[in-house]
Design a protein around this nucleic acid. Structure first.
Lengths: 147, 147
DNA sequence: CTGAATCCTTTGTGATACTG
DNA sequence: CAGTATCACAAAGGATTCAG
């Protein structure tokens, strides 16, 4: 029956929620962005390219440089992530037709524009990561005690 | 040989990059947060709970309310996500021992503190989503034309 | 009403070897 | 050097059924 004697029970439209500053954000849009950057290696890759661009704006990074900077990622994953970031326009790619092959990657302006967002995420994580870890620990302890 | 005649080629430590404001952020921390909120339904759930808390701070949301507000999520996923958010301390949960059962969920203060970050993500997505979509379209067209 | 349990498909990720 | 191809495995997510 869905009665709402105590007040509103109408379904909340999750696609549009007021932001703190009165603007509007859309969960679907956020999720689309998250899909892009929420895999295991996208953020490290973006930050690495960002650092390189900051240190030497003139010269992009070669594939092998990225590979050395991120020693744990496999070539396959690195390639895949770079391709998907390139498709979205966050990363630029240039192939030099030469022997040996030489492919360069750089963070585009669009990619750079994402940095403040990552910074915000990083600050929140730094501030609240410990609290979250403590919470997780508590739950685990509770589970362990129950056994 | 990794020569660096033209300048530094030393591997970049991707764990620490300077932020725009001179602080430090850590890719690992960002990734840990992303692991939490980067699944298909975490953001919609958080925003829904946030909206509810804003509209009626006194009364949490029942499981069935959440389910109605997010019609496309399966019960299994909703339960799983709520549990994981609860474990991290972003969501509170209270079981009323009654028949019929009644379980309430609400966004904790920690959860609320995440909103500015989501807002930043949302704003960036709203601003740059169209550009990204255009880029993706271009690539797809290029692929289609090559066939 | 609020889940838990089960089965199933899709996707993500990694290891390894091979190539222009 | 910068990939591609292949295999394998784990995790995510969905559909359905059952239970207190």
């Amino acid at each position: 029956m869905d009665t709402n004697a105590a007040g509103m029970a109408e379904p909340i439209d999750f696609r549009h929620h007021l932001t703190a500053d009165g603007g509007r954000i859309c969960a679907r849009m956020i999720c689309r962005t998250l899909d892009l950057i929420a895999n295991k290696w996208a953020v490290p890759i973006i930050l690495t390219l960002a650092a390189a661009r900051q240190q030497r704006p003139d010269r992009p990074m070669r594939f092998s440089e990225l590979s050395r900077a991120l020693p744990l990622i496999t070539q396959k994953e690195l390639t895949k992530q770079l391709r998907s970031l390139e498709a979205a326009g966050l990363v630029g790619r240039h192939v030099h037709a030469a022997v040996p092959p030489r492919v360069e990657y750089w963070l585009t302006d669009l990619g750079v524009s994402l940095r403040p967002v990552l910074d915000a995420l990083g600050r929140w994580s730094a501030e609240n990561g410990p609290a979250m870890a403590a919470n997780l620990q508590q739950k685990q302890d509770a589970v362990a005690a129950a056994e």
